[in-house]
Amino acid sequence: MVKIRIKDIAEQAGVSVGTVDRVLHNRGEVAEETRNKILGIAKANNYQPNLIARALTSKKQCIFASLLPTPTEDDIFWQSPLNGISDAVSELEQFQVKVSKFFFDHFNEQDFIQQTEAILALNPAGVVFSPIFSKESLEFTQKLEKKGIPYVFIESKIDQSNYLAYVGSDGFCGGRVAANLIDFGIPENGDILIINLAKNLENVLRLNERTQGFLSYFIDKGKNQGLKISVEISVSEAEIIKEKLDSVLANNKNIKAIFVTGSKVYKIARYLINSNISDIITVGFDPIEQNIKYLKQGSISFIIDQHPHQQGFMAIKKLFEHVLLNHEISKDEYLPIDIISQESIQLYKAF
């Protein structure tokens, strides 16, 4: 079937191309009889507008906003999704897509709130963010919805919100994968230490999901019958970690494995090396440079990768397809979970 063009519709309707363009794109005044005639011809011929061409010829900038924790040496994980966002913008440069990047202190809810207010004042065409703080993030989504601004979650999601899409791993499943790895490697009576490096854990969505998934594995099918000891360390300085873990390990001599729910597993690995402890299996998330270093040394047993670069990249592409191309968007885009070991790290290629 030959695809009909605006020029063909104009010829059939006996009007100018400009008149057809105004009707199809709802711009300017056109007589009702002429409008109905043009729309009838378009419908009869199954006219589909070339949305990509329209986006290319548009002179108007499309400004999205991103909101992520500030990448720091201590929290370098967030550089990867930020790089993914930048790569997506570079690919979409011809479409006049821009992203205003906002950052907040990973441990400061008030700073997060201030940045959300700045984004709302900007009134962007769409927002990409990670809902690290459950309560504050839910309040932000409600304000975005009130203004009609679509938003895409990365890294974790809030199910009770009306989000456009989520791109990331399944946190609950990631916790179960970690449990499965540990279950194979320790005695059935060995105890397991779960470490959350976070302040106000109840409000940190992704760490809770992973912890719940981890524990559910042992309830459902795990062979290990040892204690599951959970520790929250609100400050990640080496001295604080040492003080806390010295106490925990002194009081629990049977710990055979450590599960770190976030990307700072290297801080625990460093403690183990400095304490001359080499017989504990350690599992955490994200192949950042510091984690890879200790994986190669053997003080980290496994790293679970959740593809943060791809999360940032795909999130911007989804906003672009929804806002500029009016495409239907798949709501949940779950990325695969990769397990990286000392033996496979040389084959691993990160962005």
Results as ranks from 00 to 15, higher is better:
residue 236 S to G: 10
residue 29 E to C: 10
residue 314 M to I: 11
residue 209 E to F: 14
residue 85 I to V: 07
residue 203 N to S: 09
residue 249 L to Y: 00
residue 81 P to I: 01
residue 108 N to R: 11
residue 95 F to G: 12
residue 316 I to K: 08
residue 141 T to R: 05
residue 80 S to A: 12
residue 50 N to C: 08
residue 181 L to S: 10
residue 127 V to G: 04
residue 101 K to P: 00
residue 76 I to L: 12
residue 164 L to E: 02
residue 273 I to R: 14
residue 94 Q to L: 15
residue 190 G to H: 03
residue 111 D to K: 02
residue 264 K to W: 02
residue 67 L to A: 09
residue 300 I to D: 00
residue 270 R to Y: 13
residue 37 K to D: 03
residue 179 A to L: 05
residue 37 K to P: 00
residue 48 Q to R: 11
residue 316 I to S: 03
residue 221 K to C: 08
residue 245 L to N: 11
residue 137 S to H: 01
residue 288 I to N: 02
residue 53 A to N: 05
residue 134 S to H: 08
residue 332 D to P: 01
residue 232 E to A: 09
residue 35 R to G: 05
residue 5 R to S: 14
residue 135 K to T: 15
residue 169 S to Y: 04
residue 216 S to F: 06
residue 110 Q to M: 14
residue 139 E to K: 05
residue 255 I to K: 03
residue 260 V to L: 06
residue 113 I to P: 02
residue 40 G to K: 14
residue 296 K to I: 06
residue 41 I to L: 14
residue 325 L to A: 01
residue 34 T to C: 12
residue 258 I to G: 05
residue 129 F to M: 00
residue 250 A to H: 15
residue 69 P to W: 02
residue 150 P to K: 04
residue 181 L to W: 04
residue 289 E to S: 15
residue 110 Q to S: 15
residue 156 S to I: 01
residue 183 D to E: 07
residue 78 W to E: 00
residue 148 G to N: 06
residue 220 D to M: 05
residue 3 K to H: 14
residue 108 N to K: 07
residue 198 A to M: 07
residue 210 R to L: 01
residue 47 Y to F: 07
residue 77 F to M: 00
residue 99 V to M: 01
residue 211 T to V: 12
residue 301 S to K: 13
residue 25 H to R: 14
residue 29 E to M: 11
residue 201 L to F: 03
residue 243 E to L: 10
residue 194 I to D: 03
residue 195 I to Y: 02
residue 187 P to M: 00
residue 197 L to D: 01
